[in-house]
Deep mutational scan, measured.
Amino acid sequence: SPEEIKAKALDLLNKKLHRANKFGQDQADIDSLQRQINRVEKFGVDLNSKLAEELGLV
């Protein structure tokens, strides 16, 4: 269901964000992850996106 997909995506992105902060990645990478999280919260996951591929939806 779209809600489950959204939850999985947010979980994955939050893990990536945590790792980025923990290991001191570029601020641009961290900002990009934050924008992705905001986009998923607002609009859900686009099944044509790279994120959908990472989640194994495509």
Score class of each variant (00 low, 15 high):
residue 28 A to K: 11
residue 19 R to H: 15
residue 10 L to K: 03
residue 56 G to E: 06
residue 10 L to M: 05
residue 25 Q to G: 14
residue 55 L to A: 02
residue 5 I to A: 08
residue 33 L to H: 01
residue 41 E to P: 01
residue 54 E to W: 13
residue 22 K to Q: 14
residue 25 Q to R: 10
residue 8 K to I: 11
residue 8 K to V: 07
residue 54 E to A: 08
residue 24 G to I: 04
residue 38 N to F: 03
residue 54 E to F: 08
residue 5 I to W: 13
residue 18 H to D: 15
residue 41 E to S: 07
residue 15 K to P: 00
residue 14 N to V: 09
residue 37 I to A: 02
residue 42 K to E: 14
residue 36 Q to L: 15
residue 11 D to K: 05
residue 3 E to C: 10
residue 30 I to R: 05
residue 55 L to K: 00
residue 44 G to W: 01
residue 5 I to Y: 07
residue 46 D to C: 09
residue 51 L to R: 00
residue 3 E to L: 08
residue 45 V to Y: 01
residue 37 I to E: 00
residue 9 A to N: 00
residue 51 L to S: 01
residue 18 H to M: 12
residue 2 P to Q: 12
residue 18 H to A: 15
residue 27 Q to V: 08
residue 44 G to D: 02
residue 50 K to P: 15
residue 57 L to F: 11
residue 2 P to T: 11
residue 52 A to F: 09
residue 9 A to G: 05
residue 48 N to G: 11
residue 41 E to Q: 10
residue 56 G to N: 07
residue 3 E to H: 08
residue 20 A to S: 04
residue 21 N to K: 15
residue 3 E to K: 07
residue 43 F to N: 06
residue 2 P to R: 11
residue 44 G to L: 01
residue 53 E to N: 08
residue 12 L to E: 07
residue 16 K to G: 03
residue 3 E to N: 08
residue 6 K to P: 00
residue 7 A to E: 10
residue 34 Q to P: 00
residue 27 Q to P: 11
residue 45 V to P: 03
residue 8 K to M: 12
residue 40 V to G: 01
residue 57 L to D: 03
residue 47 L to P: 12
residue 23 F to R: 11
residue 7 A to V: 11
residue 43 F to T: 04
residue 7 A to S: 10
residue 11 D to N: 05
residue 33 L to D: 00
residue 37 I to G: 00
residue 5 I to R: 06
residue 40 V to D: 01
residue 9 A to F: 05
residue 21 N to G: 08
residue 14 N to E: 09
residue 54 E to M: 10
residue 17 L to K: 03
residue 49 S to Q: 03
residue 1 S to A: 08
residue 53 E to Q: 13
residue 12 L to K: 04
residue 35 R to D: 14
residue 14 N to F: 12
residue 45 V to F: 04
residue 38 N to P: 00
residue 8 K to G: 04
residue 57 L to M: 08
residue 47 L to V: 09
residue 3 E to M: 08
residue 33 L to G: 00
residue 8 K to L: 13
residue 45 V to L: 10
residue 9 A to V: 07
residue 47 L to T: 06
residue 3 E to F: 06
residue 53 E to P: 01
residue 31 D to L: 06
residue 44 G to A: 02
residue 53 E to W: 13
residue 33 L to Q: 01
residue 35 R to F: 05
residue 58 V to F: 05
residue 31 D to T: 08
residue 54 E to C: 09
residue 38 N to E: 15
residue 43 F to G: 05
residue 41 E to D: 06
residue 31 D to Y: 01
residue 47 L to D: 04
residue 36 Q to A: 10
residue 55 L to Y: 02
residue 39 R to Q: 15
residue 21 N to H: 14
residue 2 P to K: 11
residue 16 K to A: 10
residue 10 L to I: 10
residue 33 L to C: 02
residue 40 V to E: 01
residue 23 F to G: 11
residue 4 E to M: 10
residue 44 G to P: 02
residue 10 L to Q: 02
residue 51 L to N: 01
residue 21 N to A: 11
residue 29 D to A: 15
residue 13 L to M: 03
residue 39 R to I: 14
residue 16 K to S: 05
residue 34 Q to N: 09
residue 45 V to W: 01
residue 58 V to G: 10
residue 17 L to D: 01
residue 32 S to R: 14
residue 38 N to A: 15
residue 4 E to C: 14
residue 37 I to S: 01
residue 12 L to Y: 15
residue 41 E to C: 07
residue 36 Q to P: 00
residue 20 A to F: 08
residue 18 H to L: 12
residue 1 S to N: 12
residue 3 E to A: 12
residue 34 Q to G: 04
residue 2 P to F: 14
residue 22 K to T: 12
residue 46 D to T: 05
residue 22 K to W: 09
residue 17 L to G: 00
residue 11 D to C: 13
residue 1 S to P: 07
residue 30 I to T: 04
residue 21 N to F: 06
residue 37 I to R: 02
residue 48 N to Y: 06
residue 39 R to M: 15
residue 11 D to R: 04
residue 3 E to D: 13
residue 51 L to E: 04
residue 53 E to A: 12
residue 46 D to A: 06
residue 41 E to N: 09
residue 22 K to E: 14
residue 7 A to T: 12
residue 13 L to W: 00
residue 4 E to P: 04
residue 17 L to T: 01
residue 40 V to M: 02
residue 24 G to E: 07
residue 11 D to Y: 06
residue 26 D to A: 11
residue 54 E to I: 09
residue 18 H to F: 06
residue 33 L to T: 03
residue 57 L to T: 03
residue 53 E to F: 14
residue 36 Q to M: 13
residue 5 I to Q: 07
residue 45 V to Q: 01
residue 12 L to C: 09
residue 46 D to H: 05
residue 35 R to H: 10
residue 12 L to T: 05
residue 8 K to Q: 10
residue 55 L to W: 02
residue 9 A to M: 07
residue 22 K to N: 10
residue 42 K to L: 13
residue 2 P to V: 11
residue 11 D to A: 08
residue 39 R to D: 15
residue 14 N to P: 00
residue 39 R to T: 13
residue 20 A to W: 08
residue 46 D to Y: 02
residue 43 F to I: 06
residue 22 K to D: 09
residue 24 G to Y: 06
residue 56 G to V: 04
residue 38 N to Q: 14
residue 36 Q to C: 15
residue 32 S to N: 13
residue 35 R to I: 09
residue 16 K to D: 03
residue 13 L to V: 00
residue 40 V to K: 00
residue 56 G to A: 06
residue 47 L to W: 09
residue 52 A to P: 02
residue 16 K to I: 07
